[in-house]
Amino acid sequence: MNSRRDFLQKLAASALAMPFLSSYDAFGHADFRLPVSQGPVLRVALMGLGGYASRVAEAMQSCKRAKITGLISGTPGKLQEWGAKYQVPEKSRYNYENFDNIKDNPDIDAVYVITPNALHHDQVIRVAKAGKHAICEKPMALNAKEGQEMVDACANAGVKLLVGYRMHFEPKTLEVVRMRQAGELGKIMFFQGQCGFRIGDPNQWRLDKALAGGGSLMDIGIYAVNGARYMVGEEPVWVTAQETKTDTAKFKEGVDETIQFQLGFPSGAVASCLSTYNMNYLDRFFLNGEKGFAELQPSTGYGPIKGRTNKGELTQPHVTHQTLQMDEMAGIILDNNKPVVPVDGEEGLKDLKIMDAIYAACATGQRQELRG
């Protein structure tokens, strides 16, 4: 009897503990599968039903704490197709002209803005005015001025603004952050970030300055900008940068093909990064400290991420990035959880300020000092 009673007591205690379990601890160690019972579900409207939204939508089918309850698109056929596929009723389908009406829809908590960069600013502000939380793909805006206006609009409306930094939840990435925070790598000396691929269709929006705001830096170079910050664990104080362009027909004025940039940090650590639309096989982070190193390659692709350190191979499990991201963002929005690496609008704004400085350094040939 005693053993049975002890078993039942332990079982009850485990059940009570379940809602308080996190998908991973502060250093990315535990089981990365969310418990089934972990609080309310975040009801999300997807805005911009393109290729990346398709990836997000598919990944969300495995989420425990987030589900698709709304759709926003300028293409009626997509609204109908996606509505049927993801069981979103017509009353929760909107176009770009009338989506402000989400303010009257109790089935939507947040809107994930997955549209071309130039549209983020106005769309996020409209989402905030409708009283809904905003999740915005990166880069958050075209420049720091726009980003600040978005942060202010969401603060004034009393809603959260998160940015789609999926790598901030990736297990191997978090293990490197943990090692650095724990001092296992010693004093950090150097970071290298390489992000590049050969871009295809010359008529796509990513090569249109009016929609993209730039070129490779805005699309993939932002991974190196952001990665340098969370890998080194400091905010840079200066930037130098150089632009190279070999195809002026494809990469028109204001659309960068290749940018090399360097960052300096208060501790004396430096970063050397490359962003390009003209070279394949560039997806690597390398962090060097006095006691050790960490390398991720691939470092920011959809996975699985692979990595090693001076202690050996990283073996944390792969979970679809967008599934993990959306479940964790549900916890941030609904439970005020604090991620190891921030994903809020202030984080997005810091990257925009650095990218503004990178473009200024390319234009002037001069080192740019960064201030908070």
Rank of each mutant, 00 (worst) to 15 (best):
V270E: 13
V341E: 04
K250D: 03
T309C: 11
D256H: 00
D256N: 12
P266W: 08
I332R: 00
G348R: 03
D344R: 06
K338T: 15
K338I: 15
E235V: 13
K291T: 10
Q242L: 11
N280V: 00
S299V: 06
Q297H: 13
M231S: 09
V255R: 04
N280H: 11
Y277E: 01
N280W: 00
P298H: 05
V343E: 03
R284G: 06
V239G: 08
E235W: 09
P236F: 00
K353T: 09
Q325V: 02
K338L: 12
T248D: 12
T323W: 02
N288R: 14
K350M: 10
T315Y: 05
S299L: 04
F285I: 00
V340W: 06
G307T: 03
Q260R: 12
T246W: 05
R284W: 04
E346D: 12
L274A: 06
G301L: 14
Y230P: 00
K311C: 11
T315C: 08
V225A: 09
G268E: 08
E328P: 05
I222V: 15
T315V: 13
P304M: 05
G254L: 03
R229E: 13
V319Y: 02
L334T: 01
G254E: 00
L349R: 00
E295F: 05
A330D: 02
F265Y: 13
G303P: 05
D283S: 13
Q262T: 13
G254W: 00
R308K: 14
W238R: 15
T258K: 10
I354R: 06
W238M: 13
L282T: 02
K245P: 03
T323G: 04
E328V: 07
G307K: 00
G303V: 02
Y281H: 13
N336S: 15
P236T: 08
D351N: 14
F261T: 04
T246N: 13
V237R: 10
V341H: 09
D344C: 02
A228P: 09
N288K: 15
D327W: 00
A228Y: 01
F285M: 01
A241P: 02
H321K: 12
T300H: 14
A294G: 12
E243N: 08
I354W: 06
Y277S: 09
S267D: 01
K350W: 01
F286D: 12
Q260F: 13
G303Y: 07
A224V: 00
V237M: 10
D327C: 02
L349F: 03
